[in-house]
Write a protein that binds this DNA or RNA. Structure first.
Lengths: 202, 202
DNA sequence: TTGACAGGTAAACATTTGTTTACTATTATA
DNA sequence: TATAATAGTAAACAAATGTTTACCTGTCAA
């Protein structure tokens, strides 16, 4: 895809923002005002360039603009992480293969989704295959359901504290608690489970 | 939500389709042509009605139409029914007060969402407050989790058949099975539970 | 140095588009 | 039956909008 100049990118972002937030595209004169251009000719040139380079398509008529590469990101989309995020959480999103739409108010900055493996949290009615929405947090409160990286594996557990000590407890008694910040394996808290999706109820 | 007349619904569907497929809203005259109306006044009346009833919002300017939030991405929005649908399921949608976005592939025609009350399906890890997505069906297969109207109350249960007889079973042994099509209360099948949302994991 | 290109100003123009006025017919409803 | 709401026709009008012409200013690579 042919590269855009800085001004052209500004124009594209404005068009995309208006469609996303307002629901319909801007007029040429609205684009003028946004970009501080006094003549419609200047703004029209940007639209022509965007069309020529394949970023938008235009038809005759008012506001007849359409984004070609539909990058209308919705805040209600979250990534499903196939691999457990090993590096900094910042790069999680670029590696995500699958995205899923969720109720709009679930979609906060930085959140992601993990698929639950195993039945260690069956006591809290979180079963194998469920998708849990994770809100990234470096620490957790007493009793919260969290996602932690134990060794190289992500696991969903409840967090319990006792003085300076803390541990992760399954709600299935078949699994032993995992001590936090103790001599054992390295444990890193990824975040808190805030919601859940079950794709197939059988 | 106030009901639409048939013509108003036609108009709304055209507006939504143009935004969805073409990327920007239709002009009044395009709406005229679509609906076979010779005067712009006639089409404008429909838009005014849609705005008054809260289905769209309008601003000054060409094609300045926007679908209200619940109408956007219509395929991925489902209504949460506060009251149990007593009448024909067809009218369920116009009475719904609350709508929620769901993963796009969950949003099939006619589906709706019910909030689970009680713990009768706790054995299947469906707990109080969970939102179940219901696919309307008049009959169900052996062992499926269904929603049925027992008397005036909607209930989530598993459907079991034995020859000509059938019954609804809770997965919590504390609840007795409910016979279907027997001398007891009238039971009507609303549909099958296909997915689940848990808004708050505590 | 020159030419291509992005970016811009200014003004006029053509068209689309929304809005309004006035009047008629149909349908649902109290 | 009376009344309101809905639906429509026709025509004119005002505003918004896209398009075009003509000319200017930089930047950058051949």
């Amino acid at each position: 895809m042919e590269k855009l100049t800085e001004r052209q990118r500004e124009a594209l972002e404005f068009v995309a923002r208006m469609i996303e937030e307002r629901g319909y595209p801007p007029s040429v004169r609205e684009l003028c005002e946004e970009m501080g251009i006094s003549s419609t000719r200047g703004a029209l040139r940007h639209l022509e360039a965007l069309e020529r380079k394949g970023y938008i398509s235009r038809a005759s008529g008012a506001r007849a603009l359409r984004l070609e590469e539909r990058e209308r990101y919705s805040k209600a989309y979250l990534p499903i992480l196939g691999e457990v995020p090993a590096g900094p959480l910042r790069y999680v999103f670029e590696e995500a293969e699958e995205w899923i739409s969720v109720p709009a108010n679930w979609g906060k900055e930085g959140r992601f989704i993990l698929r639950v493996r195993g039945d260690s949290m069956i006591g809290d009615h979180i079963q194998e295959g469920d998708l849990v929405v994770v809100d990234p947090q470096l620490s957790g409160n007493q009793g919260e359901i969290v996602v932690a990286l134990v060794g190289e594996e992500a696991t969903v557990k409840r967090l319990y504290r006792k003085g300076n000590e803390a541990e992760l407890r399954a709600s299935n008694p078949a699994y032993p608690p995992i001590p936090l910040k103790e001599g054992g394996e390295e444990v890193r808290l990824l975040g808190r489970v805030v919601a859940l999706l079950r794709e197939k109820v059988i």
